[in-house]
Amino acid sequence: MAEVLVLVDHVDGMVRKTTLEMLTIARRLGEPSAVFIGAGLDAAKEVLAQYGAEKLYGFESADYDDYVVAPKAEVLAQLVTSASPAAVLMTSSPEGKEIAGRLSIKTESGLITDAVDVQAGEGGAVRTTQSVFAGGYTVQATVTKGTPIITVKPNSVAPEAVSGAAVEQAVEVSISEGAKGARITDRKPRAATGRPELTEAAIVVSGGRGTAGDFSKIEEFADSLGAAVGASRAAVDAGWYPHTSQIGQTGKEVSPQLYVAAGISGAIQHRAGMQTSKTIIAINKDEEAPIFELVDFGVVGDLFKVLPQATEAVNKAKG
């Protein structure tokens, strides 16, 4: 069976859940091979084997973390040539898409981004499902040239643990000087919030203009549910919450099990970032707010009254 390359999404060896989701998808298409680039390989090995990686290509150097995306695309391009994989999968993050874009041109291969499902089609084709036009349409697509390169949105499938051999492959790769043209020269870490990462979270609670800048009730409710906190563009533009928390067309697209929009009217730009959520709840003073067209459950009311009451009830129910 042909290999399927999965670019491991990790932070210094801490493997992100999206990687496990991609290994699960890769098994539908062939034999999963994990490609680990960067520092921290030892920390990652065990979990990659637990989720079915049959082969493990490790390229361990802190240099890769400093040279942005171009060297990673070069590594993958060399593996595409040597391993002739059935497909290459990576995370639909800005970095994943940029690596995919460069790899697509290098290998003259078709690229599909933001897949929410990937299945094996007839005759070995790789068939993807995407949600497009602000979630208004669902599209099925295939790659018609080269090696299918697919970026997969987080939370697209439930990761399934299956033991894999994770046999380490010794492969020599070369990195051109040109790929080292852009370099990270400084890092200022963000203070950790202790909350889950937005795109991976099972539950997201977001606040908008209706918070009037006070996110405390949003955060307390999110913490009662173990949720990530998001914000609408209006709240971010007003400087109330960081841009990295923005949900929508110019921010992040999320697809959690549960999305709670508090004080967000639901403009199309926002809907583009959350419309594929499984269950949607909204709290808004305005009963005419377009967000109510999407909800499974809605409360017309003041979020500063509704959320604290709900937080208390949830905390009580948890015991």
Binding site: T138, Q140, V143, F292, V295, V300, G301, D302, K305
Partner: peptide
């Protein structure tokens, strides 16, 4: 290098339950 095989309009979400807060929202 890629081909859209088919497209479907996303069905409108089923109308959810909407309540007005009267102290117990």
């Amino acid at each position: 290098w890629t081909k859209v095989e088919s497209f479907t309009k996303r069905p409108p979400r089923a109308k959810g339950q909407i309540v007005t807060d009267e102290g117990d929202g």
